[in-house]
Write a protein that binds this DNA or RNA. Structure first.
Length: 197
DNA sequence: TAGGCCATCTGGTCCT
DNA sequence: AGGACCAGATGGCCTA
C-alpha cells in the first residue's frame, strides 16, 4: 500500500500514519446515550460504538487508499501522455503541469489531424484515386513524415471521399497499443522521474 | 510572500 | 453493498 507513494513525483505523502489517523478518527461526537443507569446497556453500547468507530476507521482507510491509487494511476497516465508530447524532456526542463499537458495534447492532436488530412489530400492528388495501389501502410511508408504514427493510425481512417475502405489491408486490425496501466507505465514513469525537477 | 501546482482527504453521486 | 468517479477543501512545496 505504501508502495504507491514511491510512485508519486513528489514524495509528499505527509501523514499516512499520523495525520490521516488523526483526521479520520475525529468522530467522538454524536453518539451519546445519556443514561448512566443501566451499566450493562452502556457497556454493550460502548462496545458497539467502539466496533463501529473501528470499522469506520478501516473503511475510511480503505476508501482513501483506493482514491489515492486512483489518483496515482491518473498521474501515471498523465506521465505517459507527457512522454509522447513534443516538448523538451530533460533534467533541466521543468515537468509540464497537468493542465499544460492536456492543452498541449489537444493542440498536438489537432495538428496531427490536420497534417494527416493534408497528406491524404496530397496522396489523392498524386494518385488520382487509384485506390488499391497505394494504401494505408503503403502510403505511410512512402512519406517522409513520422511513419510509425501514420502506420498505426492508417487502418482506422476512412479513405477517399470519406468512404470506408473495403480492401483487405484496411481490414487488418490496428496494432495493439500499449494499455495505460500501472504495470505498463512503470518504466515510463520511473525513468521519467529521473528527469523531472 | 503570493501564487501556482500538487497530493490527499472527504462526501456525494452513479454504476454494477 | 461496494467500487469508481468527481469536485471541493486543505495544507505543503516551490518559484518568481
Amino acid at each position: 500500500m505504501n508502495s504507491d507513494s514511491s510512485l508519486s513525483s513528489r514524495s509528499s505523502s505527509p501523514d499516512m500514519d499520523g495525520g490521516e489517523r488523526q483526521k479520520i478518527t475525529g468522530g467522538e461526537h454524536g453518539l451519546r446515550s445519556g443514561d448512566k443507569s443501566s451499566s450493562e446497556e452502556s457497556n454493550k453500547y460502548k462496545l458497539k460504538k467502539q466496533v463501529t468507530e473501528e470499522e469506520m476507521y478501516h473503511l475510511r482507510l480503505k476508501i482513501n487508499g483506493r482514491e489515492r491509487k486512483r489518483m496515482h494511476d491518473l498521474n501515471l497516465a498523465m506521465d505517459g501522455l507527457r512522454e509522447v508530447m513534443p516538448y523538451a524532456h530533460g533534467p533541466s526542463v521543468r515537468k509540464l503541469s497537468k493542465i499544460a499537458t492536456l492543452l498541449l495534447a489537444r493542440n498536438y492532436i489537432l495538428m496531427l489531424t490536420s497534417s494527416l488530412d493534408e497528406m491524404k489530400r496530397l496522396v489523392g492528388e498524386i494518385y488520382g484515386g487509384q485506390h488499391s495501389a497505394f494504401h494505408c501502410g503503403t502510403v505511410s511508408a512512402l512519406t517522409s513524415s513520422p511513419s510509425s504514427t501514420l502506420t498505426s493510425l492508417g487502418s482506422g481512417f476512412q479513405h477517399w471521399a470519406g468512404l470506408p475502405c473495403p480492401c483487405t489491408i484496411c481490414q487488418v486490425p490496428p496494432p495493439p497499443h500499449i494499455p495505460i496501466t500501472s504495470a505498463g507505465l512503470t518504466r515510463l514513469t520511473s525513468d521519467g522521474k529521473d528527469g523531472l525537477k
